[in-house]
Nucleic acid binder design. Structure first.
Length: 802
RNA sequence: GCGGAUGUGGCGGAAUGGCAGACGCAUCAGACUCAAAAUCUGACGGUGGCAACAUCGUGUGGGUUCGACUCCCACCAUCCGCACCA
């Protein structure tokens, strides 16, 4: 009697062996494949089964590539700076340094249970000075290139986290981290000029094998639009107001203008009798949060008392102020065409402003517009352009305006520059020194890193200053240029700084001369496969692309896209909700590993549902894969010594199994890979029972196929078959289509599309023979004239009768 | 409002133009057992029938096709993203 499956014994045995002899040895002779996970922030609450999923997917893929003969770069590290780590530390009264180290140790232990082939020699931690030295170095380089700049401006502010936020971190008006309502705060900020890369970030999306959803989210976020800037002369004054429009074809219908409340000309052009109302409106607008502004459905506004001339028809148009115009998009001022823009229509209706239709469907004017007509059409009431197609005018008029000196052709982006400073302790200090004589001076590269000082009080101040501002002995320094007393910049970098480039450092993590050597960068990068959640679509994934392009521009890298292929795994949900401590629906992997083993949990993580979709966790589901593993074990134990010659059925089944598993795996349809294994195991058990044994070739192929999924089991089965080297030294099995063919096939016979019988015929039967056999089989049902006979080779017969 | 995804048994899901419900969970019945657990075997969409079988059935309504879960049109529901971007 063969011994029964014992996951403790098998998994302990092989994890020890792999510890000493890693299966994924660095081998310069092999082609590389870089498979990367989005690295975790060590948050303290540990991993749940949802975190496991992504790591299992990437490990299966890595081991598959390994078996295909690649040297697989598969590293892991810690994104340990930033708010989550700091908030955890504050809550538990432990210094962030200590809390982070403890959490890393804890999560690392949990991650090792996944049994992924991570190369721990590459491990990095963003809070390690040897790492953040280079995070700071990139900032200094950006500063020198004019891409990092200081600006005082109203930025998004989270009153709970007590720090400024980037646009990307404000989701639906609330702080992405804690859910508090974001407000505006006027602060001196460090900004990164990501907008300088808008065009490349947009165009290069075409190069990427990424989910369309993510590409679309990025391209919408960048938000490119084509249009024109047009100058309106303010009547009786010197100033001109520049507007941006994507609808130059509607210029003749512009009957008023609106400036954003923050527009620099707003007060200047206001007449004395309107001054009080305008000042009041601007003040009230300044108090509104972005959510308030969003939620006010009703348009508000105030008249400045001034007018401007529409440059094409010389009409005088009133200039209004309203907060539906945003200061940071376009020019902060718009020309309003109420007949063809919903918002302008609403505003004009409310304040009784004239509405002039200039685009009409088929050139027929609608007598009384009840809503804006936003479709294309034929231009009317537009002087020399009457009769022109509006779509054509849209493209051609900007150039024409440019020739006539009333505007210019232009493009606009929704993307804003990146607010890069945080008023928090636990981040990379921004390596800048403020000198009264020399101004803003970057810390010399040889003086990096600027170490984050140890402090007692690291709680956020809420004043707009970082807690670092209170550390006098650290703040006070000397100017590297003139030697005079100077002060350090006290803001820190956002969480995203380290994660924007960490994937480069893994392959050269101990280099103290360079961020990464050119040689290693070219050898191991870019990343071939990146696995992670979709939540970073316009955050980390956009920032990383920006950093990579910058590093490419300054010659550090020879490539300009970091991640060639992206896979977004779905979330694991429990009781219909994302797992979270507060909901009390967290499933911990630790107990499951103890009870069922790593291999079973790995397999269930895949079997739970299609990997790209959210899946409901079923506590009982793991029993099914555990039973399956035991069935595989018994199949091998019962037959490993049978020494029988492969029957045609065994050969066919083996090749079909290889074919099915390989194809499903190539398509990353990992849940059906698992069900495929179950099907073929059931089939092989039947065959083995019938034939009193199973051939060695089939068992060997199956062990190798299983290796990426259940590595401990596969190694043990492989060694039970008498092999002395690791199963991971094997090659992924190949199939032969000729050997998969059936000699007999089942053909359903339909009458008028309904299956009435199934006939079994030789696979090489002719169409005629099959049709004859089919008609014989269903002769009793052929009660009418046969209109048509359809035979789809190898698939189906359909007889149409009347 | 705009954009995207999803919709199939009690449940997770499979099938991308060709036998709908693979595979698994749960359930029920049987075997083993003094008994239970574990394990094994079988049944398992609805309706009618002792049965073979018939009939309906993939969110709803239409359409294309010999044939539709699959393709097209319209709609409904749920989830996600964006949201006054001129």
């Amino acid at each position: 009697m063969a011994r029964s499956y014992n996951h403790h014994e098998i998994e302990d045995k092989w994890s020890k062996i792999w510890e000493e002899n890693p299966v994924n040895e660095k081998d310069e002779s092999k082609e590389k494949y870089y498979c990367l996970d989005m690295f975790p922030y060590p948050s303290g609450s540990g991993l749940h089964v949802g975190h496991w999923r992504g790591y299992v997917i990437s490990d299966v893929w890595s081991r598959y590539k390994l078996l295909q003969g690649y040297y697989v770069v598969h590293p892991m590290g810690w994104d340990a700076f930033g708010l989550p780590a700091e908030n955890f530390a504050i809550k538990h009264g432990i210094h962030p340094r200590k809390a982070t180290d403890e959490n890393v140790a804890n999560i690392k232990k949990q991650i090792k249970d996944i049994a992924a082939i991570y190369d721990w020699d590459m491990e990095i931690n963003t809070t390690d000075p040897d790492f953040y030295k280079w995070t700071q170095w990139i900032f200094v380089k950006m500063f020198k290139e004019g891409l990092a700049y200081e600006k005082e401006m109203p930025i998004n502010w989270c009153p709970s986290c007590k720090t400024g936020l980037a646009n990307e971190e404000v989701v639906g008006g609330v702080c992405e981290r804690c859910g508090s309502l974001a407000t505006k705060k006027n602060l001196r900020q460090w900004m990164l000029k990501i907008t300088a890369y808008a065009e490349r970030l947009l165009n290069d999306l075409d190069k990427l094998d990424w989910p369309e959803k993510v590409k679309k989210m990025q391209s919408d976020w960048i938000g490119k639009s084509y249009g024109a800037e047009i100058d309106f002369q303010v009547e009786g004054r010197d100033e001109k107001i520049k507007v941006y429009t994507t609808r130059p074809d509607t210029l003749y219908g512009s009957t008023f203008m609106v400036l954003a409340p923050e527009h620099e000309l707003a007060l200047q052009i206001t007449t004395n009798e309107n001054k009080e109302a305008v000042e009041d409106y601007i003040y009230k607008a300044s108090l509104k949060s972005s959510v308030d502004r969003l939620q006010d459905k009703e348009k508000t506004g105030v008249f400045t008392g001034s007018y401007a001339r529409n440059p094409v028809n010389n009409e005088l148009v009133p200039i209004w102020i309203s907060d539906y115009v945003l200061i940071d998009y376009g020019t902060g001022a718009i020309m309003c065409v109420p007949a063809h823009d919903e918002r302008d229509f609403e505003f004009a209706t409310k304040f009784n402003l004239p509405i002039v239709q200039v685009i009409a469907k088929d050139g027929v004017e609608i007598p009384n517009l009840t809503e804006a007509y936003t479709e294309p059409g034929i231009m009317i009431n537009s002087g020399e352009f009457n009769g022109m197609e509006s779509e054509k005018a849209r493209l051609e008029l900007p150039g024409l305006f440019e020739e006539r000196g009333i505007g210019k052709k232009t493009v606009n982006y929704k993307l804003r520059d990146w607010v890069f400073s945080r008023q928090r302790y636990w981040g990379e200090p921004i390596p800048i020194i403020h000198c009264d004589h020399c101004g803003v001076v970057p810390v010399p590269e040889e003086d990096l890193p600027v170490l984050l000082p140890e402090v007692d009080n690291y709680k956020p101040t809420g004043t707009g200053e970082s807690p670092l501002a209170a550390v006098e002995e650290w703040v006070n320094t000397t100017c590297p240029t003139c030697g005079a007393p100077a002060k350090r910049e006290t803001n820190t970098m956002p969480q995203w700084a380290g994660s924007s480039w960490y994937f480069l450092r893994y392959v050269d993590s101990k280099n103290d001369k360079e961020l990464i050597s050119k040689e290693k960068a070219n050898k191991y990068l870019p990343v071939d496969m990146y696995v992670g959640g979709v939540e970073h679509a316009v955050l980390h994934l956009l920032y990383s692309r920006f950093y990579t392009k910058f590093l490419n521009d300054i010659g550090v890298l020879d490539f300009d896209e970091p991640f060639l292929k992206l896979f977004n795994q779905g979330m694991i949900v429990k009781d219909g909700a994302k797992m979270s401590k507060s909901k009390g629906n967290v499933v911990s992997p630790d107990e499951l590993v103890r009870e069922y083993g790593r291999d079973s949990l790995r397999l269930y993580e895949l079997f739970v549902g299609p990997p790209e979709l959210d899946s409901e966790w079923d506590d009982r589901g793991i029993d099914g894969v555990y039973r399956f593993i035991r069935r595989v074990w018994n199949l091998f134990m019962d037959n490993k010594d049978s020494n029988i010659k492969a029957t045609p059925e065994m050969i066919k089944t083996r090749h079909r199994m290889i074919y099915e598993i390989t194809h499903r795996l190539d398509n990353l349809s990992l849940n059906t890979v698992v069900s495929g294994f179950m099907e073929y195991t059931n089939k092989l058990v039947d065959i083995a029972n019938k034939e009193k044994g199973l051939d060695r070739g089939t068992l060997e192929s199956m062990a190798v196929l299983l290796a990426p999924f259940t590595p401990h089991l596969a190694e043990e089965l492989w060694s039970q078959l008498g092999n002395t080297s690791s199963v991971f030294k094997e090659k992924w099995p190949e199939y032969d289509e000729d050997k998969m063919k059936e000699t007999q096939i089942n053909i359903p016979v339909q009458i008028n599309g309904k299956t009435r019988a199934i006939i079994t015929v030789n696979a090489d039967s002719t169409k005629e023979a099959i049709l004859v056999a089919a008609k014989e089989e269903v002769a009793g049902r052929l009660t009418g004239d046969i209109v048509k006979e359809i035979y789809v080779p190898g698939k189906i017969v359909n007889i149409v009768i009347k």
